[in-house]
Amino acid sequence: MPASSPAPDNRPHRPLFAIGLRLAAVACLSVMFVTVRLASQHGVHLLEVLFYRQLAAMPLVFAYLAMSGGWQHIRPNRMGIHASRTVVGLVGMALNFGAFILLPPAEATTIGFTMPIFGTIMAALFLHEPTGIHRWGAVLLGFLGVVIMVQPDSGHFPMLGVAVALAGAFNTALVSILLRQLGRTEKAGTIVFWFTALSLPPLGIGMLFFGQAHDLAAWGLLTLIGIAGAAGQILLTAALRWGPLSIVLPMDYSTILWTTLLGWMLWNVWPMDTTWIGAALIIASGLYIAWREHVRARRVTVTPAVQHPG
């Protein structure tokens, strides 16, 4: 959520390229999340998943920096925000991974789509952005979708998994705000490098308590998590550099297609009818919030002295 008077963005926009990057990122991240569920079924602890996801990502990050000639750009301009992004990112990653362990893939993905809803709430409460009846209506519509999908009294899904997924969506909204701040001064490789580098020391300490031996299949899954996660993170960040959020954000909803297909292929799990109904409401809510944000940003750019509620 941008501030009420955003700084002008003079970077070149290539919308189709940005959309392609975002779609590729979504495919990579879908593979990563589904593989986390597989790794958990192979006895891998969540902290191990986090550590090896970051460790396996390091070579890919180094290769990306070398090919893009970005070694000279490793020096950060805003280390404080990099550190905050690391803390929030690790917590969010743990919650999102936990959601896919506790819930079926399609349902975990759908609840993750509430991220724009939490973003709107945070923008109103913490950034004091004017938020009108349109966006508050979209927020209520999104939460209605969650209730319809989860059916709290039905016992279809563990409430712990639902709570973890919602907390993960909240943290993802925080990460998105931090990434947009960093993207104004930092390159994609720089952001990914420092997130990976700063997260490994605390995770390494945790491995002293939770690390264990695994079979070859588990090691292969952990490697795939790291590669897919790093590729997705780089593509996700790069997409925001080549296109505005209002264009690339809707591509994220293709995640449900990938996770539903993978869930059906690997576990023979197909979403219930109420999941599709709830997903439609949550996606409609997110898209409407994104559209209102785009309209408000255009108005602010044209008449910066006037505040327009969303």
Rank of each mutant, 00 (worst) to 15 (best):
M1F: 11
P2K: 12
S5I: 13
P8I: 14
H13Q: 14
P15G: 00
A18V: 01
A18I: 00
I19K: 02
L21Q: 04
A25Y: 04
L29Y: 00
M32T: 01
T35Q: 07
L38Q: 13
Q41S: 06
H45K: 15
Q54N: 12
A56T: 14
A56W: 13
P59M: 08
L60R: 09
A63I: 11
M67D: 09
S68K: 12
G69M: 08
Q72M: 12
I81C: 05
G89H: 00
F100W: 05
F100Q: 04
F100P: 00
L103F: 04
P104I: 01
P105R: 03
P105A: 03
E107R: 01
I117G: 10
L125N: 04
L127K: 12
H128T: 05
P130F: 07
I133F: 10
W136Q: 01
A138G: 00
V139I: 00
G161L: 00
V162S: 04
L166P: 10
A169G: 09
T172Y: 05
L174A: 07
L174V: 04
L174W: 08
V175Y: 01
E186H: 11
I191L: 08
F195Q: 10
T196H: 05
L200C: 06
P202W: 06
G206D: 11
L208C: 15
F209R: 13
F210M: 14
L216N: 12
W219G: 06
L221H: 07
L222V: 02
I225V: 06
A230F: 08
Q233R: 02
L235R: 08
T237Y: 09
L240T: 05
L245R: 11
L245H: 13
L245M: 14
S246C: 06
V248K: 01
L249V: 13
P250W: 04
M251T: 04
S254F: 14
S254Y: 08
I256P: 05
L257R: 03
W258P: 09
T259H: 05
M265G: 11
T274E: 13
G278Y: 11
R299S: 15
V300W: 12
T301Y: 14
V302Y: 11
T303K: 10
T303L: 11
Q307V: 14
